[in-house]
Amino acid sequence: MLLLSKEDIRKVVTMADIIEGNKVAYKSVVDGEVENPLRTVIPGKYDGSFVFMPAYAPGLDAAALKVVDIFPHNPEQGLKTSPAQVLLIDGKTGYIRAILDGTYVTEARTGAASGAAFDILGKKACRKGAMIGTGGQAACQLEAMLTARKLEEVAVYSRNKEKREAFAAEMQEELKEFGTRIYAADSADEAVEDSDLLITVTGSSEPVFDGTKVKPGCTISCVGTYEPHKHELDPAVLPRTAKIICDSKDAVMAESGDLLIPIREGIISESDVLGSLGDVINGTVAGRENDDEIIVFENVGIAALDLVAAKVIYDKAVEKGIGQSWG
């Protein structure tokens, strides 16, 4: 069995690798090539939740189980909100082949979900990006945005001024090879205005931006809403939205308050949610048809992404002799 840390993973794969892996996973799900049941969530004490996400792909001869625990008060103790591990399992023998740092796998594949959506649904020519939220998921989200499109600038915003300024400065240095100006905006409005790509990655239970500020042609990736009561997307943008696409329509219709709440309030109907990104890849649902369309990508996270990412990482780690053998 191979143990793979965050540092090991970063040595063997790039964000572009994970984005391409996500596309494979999305297509495999809609093609029926992956068993991808809805996650099991067990509420715990301290406002925490224990989340179990299994998947199996016969074509890969592999299964995976991610255990990711959501504890929103962890940052008060200097800990990550979502500690996780991914177990990669041999589909022929049932033996565990690798245990991967699931916190980083989650950050990378969730960032790559936005990257895949922007690559498939975004305008070809984009100038400005925006991101609301600067927590643990934010760095990979930003890297994926810049991997998907060459941008002149990205505005980042969160409610804590010191935190957003520190994050912007750190990312400007860490992602300098992209040649993009990364700066802290003074407000969500400033960040969103004139943006071609927008990511929301917060744990908010109420909208985090003004939907009337979204310009025609913007592609929005909503990342933080994985529970029915959470609602970071401003429904004011939905009447102007040409298409709503999901990572998994079944999962989103079970979990995402971003869409469940507007459906309940009659702002949109379930039929307005056209399908999954895999359907767009397959050509059964139309993607972007002109540069004026506003497109929303709703992303709650599916286990197939963890499985494909883990398999890609494991294969490259074995090839390069990276990781610690154990057991």
Rank of each mutant, 00 (worst) to 15 (best):
T180E: 10
S5W: 07
G102R: 13
D272P: 14
T40Y: 06
G115R: 13
E20F: 06
L233N: 06
A304Q: 00
T134W: 02
E165K: 15
E170D: 15
S195W: 10
G133T: 01
V208M: 06
C246E: 06
L65Y: 14
M15H: 11
A166W: 04
S248F: 10
F50I: 00
L274S: 09
S248P: 08
K311F: 01
D292L: 02
K150A: 13
E319G: 04
M145Y: 10
R10D: 05
D250I: 15
E190N: 07
P58R: 03
K230E: 04
D69A: 12
L4W: 05
D258H: 10
G129S: 04
A130W: 11
A64D: 01
E152R: 13
P262N: 14
V192N: 03
K150H: 14
D101G: 02
Y56I: 11
G224W: 02
M171N: 06
D186V: 03
A113E: 04
K215T: 02
R264F: 07
E20L: 08
E232A: 11
I19T: 08
K243I: 12
D247H: 07
F167H: 03
A62Y: 05
E293R: 05
G327D: 12
E152Y: 11
G211P: 01
A184R: 06
G91Q: 00
A84H: 03
N299H: 10
P72Y: 04
T110C: 02
P43D: 00
S221R: 05
L197G: 05
T219F: 06
K11S: 12
V223E: 09
V201D: 02
N74V: 00
S256Y: 11
V51P: 07
S221D: 06
C140T: 14
A317W: 04
L79E: 01
A309K: 05
S158C: 14
I96D: 06
E165M: 13
I263R: 04
K230D: 05
G211M: 02
I245P: 12
G44H: 09
T147A: 12
A117Y: 02
P72G: 03
D119P: 11
G278H: 04
V285L: 10
K243P: 11
I89T: 00
A236Q: 14
L121R: 02
A130P: 10
I89V: 13
I313K: 02
D47E: 07
L175Q: 01
C140M: 14
P262R: 13
S5Q: 10
K230G: 05
G179I: 05
D250T: 15
L197N: 06
H73W: 02
V318I: 08
S195F: 11
Y46S: 15
V29H: 05
L38A: 11
S114I: 07
I42Q: 02
K6P: 05
A185E: 09
D194K: 08
K161L: 03
H231F: 15
V214K: 03
E20D: 08
D210P: 10
G102A: 09
L87C: 01
Q77D: 09
K66L: 03
E173T: 15
K80P: 15
L142V: 01
L146M: 15
Y46F: 15
G287S: 04
K316D: 01
T219Y: 08
L121Q: 05
E143Y: 13
A191K: 14
